[in-house]
């Protein structure tokens, strides 16, 4: 549905696994990582997550930036934690961080945005009797992605206008007109939606 996702196409077991259980697994793992204190358990979980990267055949150009970020963040976090709380705690915190971030990124790399949207639509299905409409989920996602494109265009215009006035140094000369035009765009979108009967209850 959208080209700006972080999904990496593939055909592995992890790619084919349904989004709902996969999401629950990541949430459970993140909770476990925060609760667990033993470096051995954390190391085991991290090994399992890394095995997931191998199974999913994540290409190097996707995992390499992730490794770089994790290493930099880990070094900084380790140094501070060591100084404040000792080496053992520092190692545990770093293991937690790396495991949770690696697992969450693996989910994002192997799951299409569309699949998550339809999973959410199905998950809120039972709430229909309380007035929740599942088809709104996809509509909201689509509308917002479109609004991001529109607002990016507006931001460019406003910035060019501020530059033309020689006011490109002033933050208010950019943000205020940008916000005013953003809210105007919201009014137009609201009228367009009302004309199509969206949002009527």
């Amino acid at each position: 549905m959208t080209p700006l996702g972080l999904y990496e196409p593939g055909g592995s077991v992890l790619h084919r696994a349904p989004a709902g259980p996969k999401l629950l697994a990541v949430v459970a793992l993140a909770a476990a990582v925060v609760v667990l204190d033993s470096p051995w358990w954390l190391g085991g979980l991290l090994t399992a997550v890394l095995a997931g990267y191998v199974v999913a055949r994540v290409p190097r150009r996707r995992w390499w930036p992730l490794v770089r970020t994790l290493v930099i963040v880990s070094i900084v976090v380790f140094a501070v934690q060591w100084w404040l709380l000792g080496a053992m705690t520092a190692a545990t915190v770093c293991l937690r961080l790396v495991t949770a971030l690696a697992a969450a990124s693996l989910f994002t790399l192997t799951t299409r945005v569309d699949d998550v949207v339809s999973t959410v639509e199905r998950a809120v299905g039972p709430l229909q009797r309380f007035g929740v409409r599942p088809e709104m989920v996809g509509l909201l996602v689509g509308l917002t992605v479109q609004a991001i494109a529109t607002l990016s265009g507006i931001a460019g215009e406003v910035r060019a206008a501020a530059k033309a006035r020689g006011a490109d140094r002033s933050p208010t000369a950019f943000v205020v007109p940008f916000l005013v035009r953003t809210l105007r765009h919201a009014d137009q979108l609201g009228e367009a939606l009302a004309a199509r009967g969206t949002g009527d209850r």
Binding site: L143, A147, T150, H185, A186, L189, E191, L193, T198, G199
Partner: peptide
Amino acid sequence: SLPAADLARIVVFAAFIAVLGI
């Protein structure tokens, strides 16, 4: 305040926060 107008404000402001991230 129509629901459609509310919906539009919510959607457009979510997009605004995203554009701030640029």
